[in-house]
């Protein structure tokens, strides 16, 4: 296959344009590029380095496969259990509890304790405190990224809320289905617990982003700052109230309240690519802040 005359012409013309613009002139790397790379070279021969790299690759792949199997195998076993209509461990536990008077009494007594005003208040306070601490810890670990995601939320709150609700819904439905399968076998129960814990991570991040967006507003500022300050603490404290209040009435209400609060932050996280990249009128101020 040869170039057509118009191809050749375009090739030459484009080459000339690029050359005239100086775009073909090479850019120089930093002077110490070679020295820095040489410093990083494996202290062995290429053959041994290649062998070690291959072993590392196999190890990483094995661990990833193992983790995948750890979730997939109990999930498949759970699906089979459900399809066969066999009794699941949770159903068995509930059945045993139902047949035992002692267990019934124990459950009733526990419910009574949970219903006591003091217990409910204590539970609410603990929930509030836990959420504030978690929010501040995560914001402290990722101050810049959480601030940038907060800026994304301030810029497009409706869009962020819509994206967040969609993502939250998908996560809850997806994880719900997986948890149902995992909980259908005894082996799947501990994995289900881990999945349940991991499911909370995006929502915690979402709450942190909402706190980072709310903080400047509470402090009466119009621009975001990258450092975690008292305004963030005040926002975290305020945001922890709804779940704490809901928790003092009904434990089942805690997660839906948290998820609803986190949804706009989750959306902002997605819009700002995890708080990594975002263009905003607030940006230059945040950089200086």
């Amino acid at each position: 296959m040869t170039d057509s005359p118009s191809d050749e012409m375009l090739d030459r013309a484009l080459h000339n344009v690029l050359a005239r613009a100086g775009a073909l002139a090479p850019r120089r790397p930093t002077a110490d590029l070679v020295a820095r790379t040489a410093h990083r070279l494996p202290r062995t021969t290429p053959r041994l380095a290649a062998r070690r790299a291959a072993v590392r690759r196999v190890l990483v792949r094995s661990v990833m496969t193992l983790l995948l199997l750890l979730v997939a195998v109990p999930a498949v076993a759970g699906a089979l259990t459900l399809v066969r209509g066999a009794e699941t461990p949770l159903a068995r536990l509930a059945g045993v509890a139902g047949q035992s008077d002692a267990r019934t009494e124990l459950v009733a007594a526990t419910m009574l304790r949970l219903d006591a005003p003091l217990t409910r208040t204590l539970l609410g306070v603990l929930l509030w405190l836990g959420q504030v601490i978690a929010t501040m810890l995560v914001a402290g670990l990722w101050p810049r990224r959480s601030a940038l995601a907060g800026v994304a939320l301030l810029d497009a709150p409706v869009r962020a809320a819509a994206v967040g609700m969609l993502m939250a819904g998908s996560l809850v439905i997806g994880a719900g289905a997986l948890l149902t399968l995992l909980a259908a076998t005894i082996a799947g129960l501990p994995v289900a617990l881990v999945v349940l814990l991991l499911l909370q991570a995006p929502f915690v991040l979402g709450i942190v982003v909402v706190a980072r967006a709310l903080g400047p507003r509470l402090a009466g500022r119009t621009v975001a700052r990258s450092e975690v300050d008292l305004a963030t603490l005040a926002a975290a404290a305020l945001l922890a109230l709804p779940a704490a209040v809901a928790g003092s009435f009904s434990l089942a209400a805690v997660l839906p309240v948290l998820y609803l609060l986190a949804a706009p932050g989750l959306g902002a996280l997605i819009l700002s690519r995890g708080g990594m990249r975002y263009t905003s009128r607030y940006y230059s101020e945040m950089q200086n802040g």
Binding site: P143, R144, G275, M276, R277, T279, R281, Y283
Partner: peptide
């Protein structure tokens, strides 16, 4: 998938202004 990194570095963001 770069946003999945645990670093706190914010990527170069072009300012609209």
């Amino acid at each position: 998938f770069a946003w999945l990194t645990l670093d706190d570095a914010v990527a170069s963001v072009p300012s609209p202004a």
